[in-house]
Write a protein that binds this DNA or RNA. Structure first.
Lengths: 131, 131
DNA sequence: AATAGATTTATACTTATTCTAAATTGAAAT
DNA sequence: ATTTCAATTTAGAATAAGTATAAATCTATT
């Protein structure tokens, strides 16, 4: 049930996401594949990203922009976006378990996970702003 | 600077959102306007929703679906989505200040706010599932 | 080598939203 | 009351992200 079939295309898409320093969108991934000499169909990139997400080799991030971003870190963490330059950072500080429990009590839902997007201003933009 | 110009259209859009029991999308708002006998241009509904959001009379919610939803509650709160039926509930339990502070320390960002979407299963769907 | 299932490709389509240019409205000045 | 000007609305075109489709290709197994 967890057999993974990594075709050339899927492997190449995975490599791009894994080696990215940022959180690329599907379009970013497409561009980087071209830079590396590949030329896959647009749909194949989307299919591969979906496949890799389903196999939990990467994560799909919805940070409130139009396009999803992808992240090769699959351990539990959240994200922070700079309101000025858009830079996305990782947030490793875990959500207190107690908050989740309280939310379950409050809402009557069985709580599975929380997706958090923090907004703020990154160090660089803060420095620039001071001038 | 905070003069608010509520045209007929904007007022009608505001009324729909304010009187909604759920969190309507732009398309939902459009439909409800028609039910009430209005027939505004599609673009006007989007413009009005944007205007009302800018004036902070409503909030735009990005819950990870394709379409934004709108909420007339502008006080600080979060949302929880049922993975099965999609029902959206309000989460009033506040995120501990301490978590925000820790995130600021960790990331070096100046933290403004956190958008949280909790995923889980609502009471109704849980009951149905048991059978 | 033949077959079948999975995958890729190219392209068409869908959905949500924004843009544009012309028409309309409404308030202020004559 | 009429002119004027900016803001707004309208209808429809345009865009962006992603999905669907059908034919072609690849890959593993007989």
């Amino acid at each position: 049930m967890k057999t993974i079939n990594l075709t050339t295309q899927r492997q190449a898409v995975y490599d791009v996401v894994r080696e990215a320093e940022d959180h690329p969108t599907a379009a970013d991934v497409m561009n980087r594949l071209v830079e590396r000499g590949h030329s896959f169909a647009y749909g194949t990139v989307y299919n591969s990203l979906r496949y890799l997400t389903e196999k939990e080799m990467i994560r799909e991030l919805k940070l409130g922009e139009a396009a999803s971003r992808y992240d090769a870190r699959t351990d539990d963490h959240q994200h922070i976006v700079c309101e000025i330059c858009g830079k996305v950072g990782e947030v490793m500080t875990p959500m207190p378990e107690e908050w989740m429990t309280r939310v379950a009590e409050e809402t009557g839902y069985e709580v599975h996970e929380a997706h958090i997007v923090v907004e703020g201003v990154c160090a660089e933009c803060r420095t620039k702003r001071k001038k």
